[in-house]
Design a protein around this nucleic acid. Structure first.
Length: 588
RNA sequence: GGUCACGUAGCUCAAAUGGAUAGAGCAACUGCCUUCUAAGCAGUAGGUUACAGGUUCGAAUCCUGUCGUGAUCACCA
């Protein structure tokens, strides 16, 4: 990070240290005090005391006085337990508010970071073309999509890519089941979403396969044999097979599109494994010539890392077909050739950590120095209260189901509210958006490194730290703005000698942190930092709202101050939620 | 068994990357709508941060060990 959030005061303190102690300190240790009584910004003195070899108290007083002078006595300071606490007077808050009221505030976020613009490929979602998207995909999609948005927000070029695993034994399985038992029926005839339709046949296959396993005690059961034969046919380009394959895949893609649309997800590029799986093979052949890989008697090709913790890894099967990692090798090389990128991020679950570790190592062995641009953004899995989701067990919860569930809960809750308050018929209500905000926020507010245990009956609440709470706060803000326009008028240049209370200072302080949070969120690859921050803003605002009458034409100067706070708060909530992929509504 | 994560209030999660008295929400109980949206606000109660050591001015956070949970170690993807 080039720009530190504490920069203004940091500069002055460095100057102070240089002028008093004749030393250049590179890193100063700042923090926001947890408790308001301590102050607004604190400098930690312990380490400073060590490097300067002077007592804490003396350093604190010297720096404090210096800063106080620089700020024309607009800042007080106190030293407590090794912390130098700065307390800003009301003028400071007023100047923060003025700065943020400038309409360029959001535009300037990009400019102000002095970041070197990077071109970044981010790969996420990457589904198999044989079943509907489920809760695991949902987490992946939401993280990938919001990370893309956050990276764009702070000025990077982002290319969002999904690769569809559209070929291989798993796809052949659903084809076989459909051929055997489908009797030519189609999703349209049955009025089922295409991905659900195909998924049904995939499960059907698995069911039969498991039954056969018990019977034959041999992994290569009759139905699996059929699938393998079909895979060979496919690889040989058998026209009939290819036709069915195309038809069934298109059913699935239509289904995916519907789900993506509901979620508001768009990719810049969609890759299909069937188009790229051969690239890797060529790379392996070259590597074999160069002696980086070796061939076994049966014709299979391997890499030996000669390193503890790394077993030899298969790259080409004895029948010359490629394995999963071979494709990833080829695709990485292809992407690096096509795009002049600075970074490539794979958003893929942690169950594939080992896979990526090996992938990067192989690329390194092949001599590609750009391998350090690649990064596996690993996140934890989604579990049900009963444990892991498994299609074999049939306890997989798909995205379409959970979305419709959320919407129906939103509708039910609204009708309850309606009984209490007499809402007009023409109020614009969007249950979809309320339900989706609850769902998306629930997934994004959690640290990606931690497991999500999703209980469909209990998990998503509409009260407290939820998307709906934020949504509600936002609608309230827009409502306040409408009321202001009805009953008040804007005045300029009357902001002098304004006195702020704690509630007002708190909201100004927290909205001012927005750029800082964006940077933190992007540095850590963690949208949850942003999500929890938006919740904090909402809470802080609601406290102010409950404590004060904000729109009051009898108190026009403060109403003008407030409308600025209200407006900025609303814009930040909206901006932040949009970065999480959540649409906001003005009335609810 | 090897490797890698995680373990915080009854439940679901925070904690500014080592800082001050570990914070929220849900569930429970108590107040607040003739006044800007009560899907809100205020309050009560709930903690030996899995356990045991260590590092230092200072540890939920770093190190070591133990226990627990999960992931991963395929000619699957």
């Amino acid at each position: 990070m080039n720009k530190n959030y504490f920069q203004p005061i940091e500069k002055i303190i460095k100057k102070a240290i240089y002028s008093i102690y004749k030393k250049k300190i590179i890193k100063l240790d700042f923090q926001y005090p947890k408790n308001n009584d301590f102050g607004d910004i604190s400098l930690v003195l312990f380490s400073l005391s060590n490097t300067l070899n002077k007592p804490i108290k003396e350093i604190g007083e010297n720096i404090g006085n210096y800063v106080n002078n620089e700020f024309n006595n607009d800042v007080k300071f106190s030293i407590l337990k090794g912390f130098l606490n700065f307390i800003f007077k009301d003028n400071y808050y007023l100047s923060l508010l003025r700065e943020m009221s400038n309409s360029n505030f959001f535009y300037n976020i990009k400019k102000n970071f002095f970041l070197k613009k990077k071109k970044i490929i981010i790969e996420y979602s990457s589904p198999n073309a044989n079943k509907p998207l489920h809760l695991g995909h949902l987490r992946n999609i939401l993280i990938g999509s919001s990370m893309s948005k956050i990276l764009k927000m702070i000025g990077h070029d982002v290319i969002q890519v999904q690769i569809i695993n559209d070929r291989g034994i798993h796809v052949c399985k659903s084809i076989i089941a459909w051929k055997k038992f489908g009797n030519g029926i189609t999703p349209i005839k049955q009025n089922i979403k295409g991905d659900h339709f195909v998924g049904k046949y995939y499960s059907f296959f698995e069911k039969i396969y498991n039954e056969e396993l018990n019977k034959y005690k041999n992994k290569e059961t009759p139905i699996l044999k059929c699938a393998r034969i079909l895979l060979k046919k496919w690889e040989n380009g058998d026209k009939k097979t290819i036709d069915i394959w195309k038809k069934m895949n298109n059913w699935v893609y239509d289904g995916f599109k519907e789900t993506y649309d509901k979620l508001g997800i768009n990719f810049d590029i969609t890759e299909y494994e069937s188009n790229i799986y051969n690239i890797g093979k060529e790379i392996i052949k070259e590597g074999l010539k160069k002696g980086i890989f070796f061939k076994k008697k049966d014709g299979s090709v391997w890499i030996d890392f000669n390193k503890k913790g790394y077993d030899p890894k298969l790259l080409l099967r004895s029948d010359k077909t490629s394995v999963y990692i071979t494709q990833d090798i080829g695709n990485a090389i292809k992407r690096l050739k096509e795009f002049n990128i600075d970074r490539m991020i794979y958003v893929v679950g942690k169950e594939q950590e080992n896979h990526f570790k090996i992938l990067f190592r192989i690329l390194k062995s092949l001599g590609y120095l750009w391998v350090n641009k690649l990064f596996h953004f690993s996140y934890e899995m989604v579990f049900l209260p009963t444990g892991r989701m498994q299609s074999r067990v049939g306890n997989v919860i798909n995205i379409d189901y959970i979305i419709s569930k959320m919407i129906s809960i939103a509708k039910k809750n609204f009708n309850k509210k309606r009984l209490i308050k007499n809402y007009k018929k023409d109020d614009i209500i969007s249950y979809e958006k309320i339900g989706l905000s609850a769902l998306k926020y629930f997934f994004l507010k959690m640290d990606p490194k931690k497991k999500i245990i999703f209980d469909p009956l209990k998990s998503i609440n509409f009260k407290g730290n939820t998307g709906v709470y934020i949504q509600y706060t936002y609608s309230r803000i827009r409502s306040l703005e409408r009321n202001f326009l009805k009953s008040c008028y804007l005045i300029n240049n009357c902001w002098n000698n304004i006195i702020f209370d704690l509630y007002e200072k708190n909201i100004i302080k927290i909205i001012n942190k927005y750029p800082f949070v964006l940077i933190k969120s992007s540095n850590n690859f963690d949208p949850s930092l942003l999500a929890n921050y938006i919740y904090e803003i909402s809470r802080t605002f609601n406290r102010l709202y409950q404590k004060k009458k904000l729109i009051d034409c009898k108190n026009i100067i403060y109403s003008n101050i407030y409308i600025n706070i209200i407006h900025i708060t609303g814009n930040i909530i909206k901006s932040g939620m949009n970065l999480l992929g959540i649409d906001m509504i003005d009335i609810m």
